[in-house]
């Protein structure tokens, strides 16, 4: 796989989520055909590598941040952040949409509770639509 180094993607996280350069400078961003990977390693990616760091963005048709990368850097976000309580958090993680929590926001947001970054959400027409992948959705028996 070809990994094209494109550190300009730092600008996306700076502009959309207000994350400081100081946090972003340790990540190098590598683009493949449909994804952008965030990598803190020193050695350049091997062409044989199937994964480099953590997938940060999907870029096929639209640019969409991943829950896994927002769970790493989302705590530093100062813009486009939606705070919800623990009960709303459970619903959000289960894939439910929430009404009335992102009136003034539009587009992709970092969704968090007081203690944890839950992942990526999409604010559309005042509704928060969960973008958390199914693999991260909790089972009813979980604590």
């Amino acid at each position: 796989m070809q990994y094209l180094k494109k550190d300009d993607y730092r600008n996306y996280f700076r502009d959309v989520f207000g994350i400081s350069e100081d946090i972003l400078k340790k990540y190098h961003f590598y683009e493949t055909s449909s994804s952008v990977w965030a990598y803190t390693g020193d050695a350049a990616p091997l062409s044989e590598a199937e994964v480099v760091g953590v997938r940060a963005l999907r870029v096929r048709n639209i640019t969409k941040p991943t829950t896994s990368f927002l769970r790493i850097i989302g705590k530093y976000a100062t813009k486009n952040v939606v705070f919800i309580d623990d009960e709303q958090g459970s619903s959000f993680l289960s894939g439910e949409s929430l009404i009335g929590v992102c009136q003034s926001l539009k587009g992709y947001v970092v969704v968090r509770t007081a203690s944890d970054v839950l992942g990526c959400g999409l604010c559309r027409n005042g509704i928060l639509i969960s973008q958390v992948p199914k693999k991260y959705r909790p089972d009813i028996t979980w604590l």
């Binding site: 990598y39 390693g41 091997l46 590598a49 199937e50 994964v51 760091g53 953590v54 997938r55």
Partner: peptide, 30 residues
């Protein structure tokens, strides 16, 4: 940097999924 290698696709999926869940960003998987 860590180069993390394995042979089988199913095992690599588990590796990738753990690397992602734990927020490990200095690994490349081959």
């Amino acid at each position: 940097s860590i180069v993390a290698n394995d042979t089988r696709a199913s095992r690599l999926r588990a590796l990738g999924s753990n690397v992602e869940r734990l927020g490990v960003t200095n690994v490349m998987i081959t």
